[in-house]
Computed example of a mutant assay.
Amino acid sequence: MIKSHGPAFRKQAMELAQCPACRGKAVIKGVFHDLACVQCNASGWVAGATGEALPVDELVTQLSLRLQAAQRQINELKEPRVSGPEAIYQDNNRRGAGGSNRTLD
């Protein structure tokens, strides 16, 4: 069944691009000090398809989705997956005393 009205069940990540005015830095150089970039709401990110600034509530959600994806990727890289004979050696085979690992070395 396709949803025809109302908010979506899940929030979808949208394509973001660096702001062309501030080049993703969220500030632009003023004469004496840095000024918040008004083209991207001082975030450094704009909608990838249109190049328009996102509303603050949508921007927070999209940045949170990106951060969560980056955290998942970091956690996957921290836990290296072993394969082949090493995977069998590292896995607990429960053949030792009390169900402990026995490798027969």
Rank of each mutant, 00 (worst) to 15 (best):
I2R: 12
H5M: 12
P7V: 14
P7C: 10
A8I: 10
R10D: 11
R10W: 10
A13T: 11
E15T: 12
E15P: 00
L16P: 01
L16M: 08
C22G: 03
R23K: 15
G24D: 04
D34E: 13
L35H: 07
A36F: 00
A36V: 05
C37G: 07
C37D: 04
N41M: 03
N41G: 09
V46S: 02
V46G: 01
G48E: 06
A49H: 12
G51C: 08
A53L: 04
P55F: 05
V56S: 12
D57W: 01
L59S: 14
L59T: 13
V60P: 00
T61G: 08
L63N: 06
L63Q: 10
S64W: 11
S64C: 06
A69Y: 06
A70N: 11
A70I: 08
R72T: 14
Q73A: 15
L77P: 00
L77A: 12
L77V: 07
L77M: 13
L77Y: 02
E79R: 12
E79H: 13
V82K: 11
P85Y: 10
E86R: 14
E86V: 11
I88T: 15
Q90P: 00
A97P: 06
G99V: 04
S100P: 00
S100M: 07
R102E: 14
D105K: 12
